[in-house]
Each structure stands twice: as structure tokens, then as C-alpha cells.
């Protein structure tokens, strides 16, 4: 009986230990959007689902950021149709490939600054271990969005905004 009890305790302890450490980035992640004042960040927390490794979580977080908060929330949103094509994480830099629909946000510095600020803050949250974000549009590096203002061909960090 004692052996059985010890066995159950050992199994339970092992399960607790392994499941406590498996989600290295936690069960949820903070996704930022920028309020309609163009500068104030609005954090909201989303569940991670099955994403666990760093690249998958980064892709998931970037996708959530680009999709934006629920419709009832007033925020600056990426242009309709914009989606994340890929996120590659190497060291402390994430390389985000956005679909070309994002070009539409270049008109005026307000929208593009607000959008990319939210994206950079989302990907550089501490639990991801990322401190810089490189951007591609449609697979290509760009100096700015067409007609845009924000320099995109060098990594962006929180200090960029």
C-alpha cells in the first residue's frame, strides 16, 4: 500500500514537473495594439493554443497583432487583408514577412508608426527573448513602405519608437 502510494506520488510529481516546464513561454502571450491616439499601447492577452516553441509563438503573436483586437476595441489596425507570411527567429532578432496589403498603411506617418510600434512591442516582450524585428514585405526587404516614412530595412526595436 505504501509502495503504491509512493508510486502515485512519484508519478504525480514527475507529471507536475514536466508539465510545469514544458510551455517555456507560458500559456498565453501579450499582444499589443496602438490606441487611436497613435501612440498609447493597448495590451491584451491571448491564449497560445498549441504553439509552444519560440518561432511558433512569435508567429502566433505577430499574427494576432496584425489581426488586431476584437472589433469593439478602438485601435489603429493594419490594412484589411494584411497577414503574416512567416516569422523566423534567429538569436534575438525576429524576421517578419508581411503580406503586401500592409503597403496601404504608408499614407501618412500616423498609421504606419502605430502599426509597427504594436508589432515590435508584441514581438519584443521579454518571454520571447527577442529584442529586434526585421521586416520584409511580400518576401522582400524594403527601405520603407512605398511612399512611407518609417525606415524598415534596419531592425526595429522598442527604442525606435
Amino acid at each position: 500500500m505504501v509502495l503504491i502510494a509512493l508510486f502515485i506520488v512519484a508519478v504525480g510529481a514527475a507529471w507536475w514537473a514536466t508539465h510545469r516546464q514544458a510551455p517555456a513561454v507560458g500559456d498565453s502571450i501579450v499582444v499589443y495594439s496602438t490606441k487611436v491616439d497613435g501612440t498609447t499601447l493597448l495590451p491584451w492577452r491571448v491564449s497560445l493554443g498549441s504553439a509552444r516553441d519560440r518561432s511558433s509563438v512569435a508567429f502566433y503573436a505577430a499574427t494576432q497583432c496584425v489581426a488586431g483586437p476584437p472589433p469593439s476595441v478602438d485601435a489603429v489596425r493594419f490594412p484589411a487583408g494584411t497577414h503574416v507570411r512567416a516569422v523566423d527567429v534567429e538569436g534575438t532578432t525576429a524576421d517578419v514577412d508581411l503580406s503586401p496589403e500592409v503597403d496601404a498603411s504608408a499614407a501618412g506617418g500616423f498609421a504606419e508608426a502605430a502599426e509597427f510600434k504594436a508589432l515590435v512591442w508584441t514581438l519584443t516582450q521579454p518571454q520571447l527573448g527577442i529584442d529586434a524585428v526585421r521586416v520584409r514585405i511580400g518576401g522582400a526587404r524594403v527601405a520603407t513602405l512605398p511612399g512611407g516614412h518609417l525606415e524598415l530595412d534596419e531592425p526595429l526595436s522598442r527604442a525606435s519608437f
Partner: peptide
């Protein structure tokens, strides 16, 4: 010198970057 644009019509004013 630029003119700003926003996806929300309530945004207005002058900004110095």
C-alpha cells in the same frame, strides 16, 4: 512637411516627429 492620414477619422491635429 507632410500631411497625415489615419484609418480612424477621429484622429486630427499636428504632430512633430
Amino acid at each position: 512637411i507632410h500631411v497625415n492620414s489615419a484609418p480612424i477619422s477621429s484622429a486630427r491635429g499636428t504632430t512633430f516627429y
